[in-house]
């Protein structure tokens, strides 16, 4: 049995070779499972930090998958997962309106106070 393997890199699949006949073939999620975002807390007292995403059928599988994928090297002691669709993100097009007005308002930084010497961790 001959199996011909063609390796394509991103973007170099010829137009006429995309899709299989009528309609479009979408690259479906593996097994149709939703995507989950994974947050790991590395030790007590610290925040959960976003570490990546994975696919799983439900929350329990997502946590177990996260345990296997993201904590193999003792990265964490607590895992949060949230389905990616529940995350709402700001629009990159809004970046100008959102963030640039803050650039010339240095007075919003609490750097104009003289702090007493003995005050630590500010």
């Amino acid at each position: 049995m001959n199996i011909r393997l063609t390796k394509y890199y991103y973007g170099d699949i010829p137009e006429e070779n995309t899709g299989g006949g009528a309609g479009t073939v979408t690259v479906k999620d593996v097994a149709g499972w939703p995507l989950w975002e994974v947050f790991i807390r590395s030790k007590q007292g610290l925040d959960h930090k976003h570490v990546g995403s994975l696919q799983a059928a439900d929350a329990q599988m997502a946590i177990e998958n996260a345990r296997d994928v993201y904590t193999r090297r003792s990265e964490g002691i607590s895992i949060w997962v949230v389905e990616s669709k529940h995350i709402h993100a700001s629009n990159p097009d809004d970046a100008g309106a959102f963030y640039e007005p803050a650039n010339d308002k240095v007075y919003r930084h609490p750097t104009f106070y003289d702090l007493p010497e003995e005050l630590k961790h500010m």
């Binding site: 593996v30 994975l54 799983a56 177990e64 998958n65 994928v69």
Partner: peptide, 12 residues
Amino acid sequence: GPVLEQDIAITN
């Protein structure tokens, strides 16, 4: 493995 995550799980 059937999916990446389970590939990692079984090899773990």
